[in-house]
Structures are given as C-alpha cells and as structure tokens.
C-alpha cells in the first residue's frame, strides 16, 4: 500500500470515528439538557427559604429533573407529596441535625472538577468549607449539631485505576479540630491492638459529639466499630456491618448486611442490630439496599433505592414487620428537622 493510499484511509477513518465520537457527545449533551427541564408528573418545586431549625420538615436532595435538580429542598414531614421548597444550594450528599447541615458538593473548575465539604447553618449559609480528596459518599451530623463527619471515595492513580479506598474525616465544630483520616485512630480488634495496611473506615453515625459508630474494613471483612474522638480509638463490636445508622434512642443500629447467596452486584440487605443483645433483625425490605439509612423515628427507617430519577426514598419498619413503602420519589440524602 503506498503512502497516499494509507493517508486517504487514515483521513477517512478520522472523519468516521470523529463523527461517531461527536455524535455520541451531542447525544449525551441533549440528554443532559433534558434533565434541566421539568418533567410532567414530577413533584412541583419552587424556590423559597429552607430552614434547618423549622420543626417537622423533611430536608433532602431533590433528584427530580428541572431547574432545581440536585438542590436541597424541604417538604412538610406530614405531606411529603406536596410542593417542594428549593434552597438553591446544590449538594451530592447532605445531612442535618439541630440546625447544622453538612453538604458535600462538586465544584466545577476550568480543567477539572473538585469536591468540597461545606458546613451550613440553619439558614443554609456556609460556615466552613474543606477540600475533599475524592468523590463524596456519606455525610452525617451529630445529634447536637456540634460535630460532622464525611466519607469520600479515593481511587489510586494506577493504570485503569483499580485500587479504591475510602477516607473518613470528623470535624469538631466547637474547637474546629479536623481529624482528617479515621484510619489514624487506634483500632482495637476484640480488644487487641490491630494494624493493617488495607484498613478502610466509612459511614460514621454519631451517638453524641464524641462517640460514634462506623464501619471498618480489613482483610476482606467488615466490622461495626464504636469510636471515641477523645481517646482516638475504634473498637470492634460486630462483624458484617456496613453504613451503620444509630437509632434516636441509641439502642439499635440499622445497617447494610452482606448476605450469602446474593448476586455480587446486589449483596446487601437492610438489617437492624440490637446493640445490647447483638441480635440481628432483617427488615421487610427484600431488595438490595446500598445506603446509610436514616431513622424517621424510633420505629421507622428511611433509605434510598434506585428510581426513575436516580433515587427514591422508601420507608420500612425497623422491627422486621410490614412492608416497605415508597415515601418520596426523586429524592436522596434525607434529614428531619427539629429533631435533636
């Protein structure tokens, strides 16, 4: 084949492949634009004031398409199907308690996107901000609103980026102390000091502003740990527990349990662990749950499942009875206001 012929083939291929690439990008861009338009039948959303200290409201990330997509919105806890009030604050992950909010958000830069954690006051005004090392996955505020925690997902820089790990930080709002990485805490495995290079910590849930529960993974297993910020220790409590969520009365933990025989894509079911007896109770939710649940009250769990707009919120009884029920369509990362 002579040079001219080869160049002609190359030129034709560049046109063809370039066309395919451009077409795919335009198609995806059109789809993205579609998400900025309000869809028929989706919950109505209008701008307004969202207060974290207004009692009796559910505050969450609005997933419904339209101009207020990804904004923190609120609805009356009694009438969740009513119009949503949008705050204008966009978050990927969100949680709130006692008038303090934590918002993990994306920052769109010129050459790359970054992420940051923003601490919000009751009017959703920014109090503090921190750069994040990776993609946000979990966020929690302590019941008294004086400490916050978040987990991001960092990936290795190796070819085909296959080494994933988590980084969990806890911030004391009272003193401003940031414990950047809970992996630096002392881990007591069955009361014995334990060290491992493959340690990962995620999914903090606070008991008060010093004590908390979280998940620790090492050696292919996960553990429920109780943590203490003053002594900087983590102590294993139970195995096979991910993304714990402590009940308001502090007696139980709702969590993701990896169950035998489930598909590797959908291995988790929603369970509740009694912290005194360590008895596990399966909830009536039969589907795979990949979320850190929220306790609506001492009897009811609120959690996310995949939905038409990415995520819907569902409720199920914590004692294993009844059926799961869809509580809020097109919603993620809920919190209840006016609760300590």
């Amino acid at each position: 084949m002579n040079r001219t012929k080869r160049l002609v083939i190359l030129f034709a291929a560049v046109l063809l492949l370039g066309g395919v690439a451009l077409g795919a990008t335009l198609h995806a861009a059109g789809r993205a634009a579609e998400k900025d338009r309000t869809q028929a039948g989706s919950p109505p959303v209008r701008s307004g004031e969202v207060g974290l200290d207004t009692p009796g409201r559910e505050v969450f990330r609005n997933m419904a398409w339209g101009p207020h997509r990804d904004e923190i919105v609120s609805v009356p806890a009694g009438g969740p199907d009513g119009p949503r009030t949008a705050s204008g604050v966009k978050c990927l992950r969100f949680h709130a308690a006692s008038g303090t909010g934590i918002c993990l958000q994306a920052v769109h830069g010129k050459l790359r996107d970054t992420y940051r954690a923003v601490v919000l006051d009751a009017k959703l005004h920014e109090l503090h901000r921190y750069d994040l090392a990776g993609i946000p996955t979990r966020a929690r505020v302590a019941p008294d609103g004086r400490a916050v925690a978040w987990t991001v997902f960092v990936s290795g820089d190796s070819y085909a980026g296959t080494a994933f790990s988590t980084r969990t930080s806890v911030l004391d709002l009272h003193t401003g102390t940031l414990d950047r990485n809970l992996e630096d805490y002392r881990l007591l495995m069955d009361d014995r000091p334990y060290k491992a290079p493959d340690l990962n910590v995620w999914g903090v849930t606070f008991a008060d502003d010093d004590r908390f529960y979280a998940t620790v993974a090492t050696g292919g297993r996960t553990y429920l740990v109780s943590g203490d910020r003053r002594t900087r220790t983590l102590r294993t409590v139970h195995t096979n527990v991910e993304c714990p969520s402590l009940s308001p009365d502090g007696t139980r933990v709702a969590y993701k349990k990896r169950v035998q025989g489930a598909s590797p894509d959908a291995p988790w079911r929603l369970y509740v662990l009694d912290l005194r007896t360590l008895r596990e109770t399966a909830t009536a939710e039969q589907r795979n749950v990949d979320d850190q649940a929220v306790w609506q009250d001492d009897r009811t769990l609120l959690y996310s499942l995949p939905g038409n707009y990415g995520s819907d919120l569902w409720t199920v009884s914590a004692d294993g009875s009844g059926h799961s029920r869809r509580a809020l369509p097109a919603a993620l990362a809920p919190a209840l206001t006016g609760r300590r």
């Binding site: 997902f153 988590t166 292919g220 995949p306 990415g310």
Partner: peptide, 8 residues
C-alpha cells in the same frame, strides 16, 4: 450508583 467501598 455502586459503592465499591474498600475493595478493588
């Protein structure tokens, strides 16, 4: 929407 937390 996967959470491959803690495993490669």
């Amino acid at each position: 929407g996967l959470s491959p937390l803690g495993f490669g």
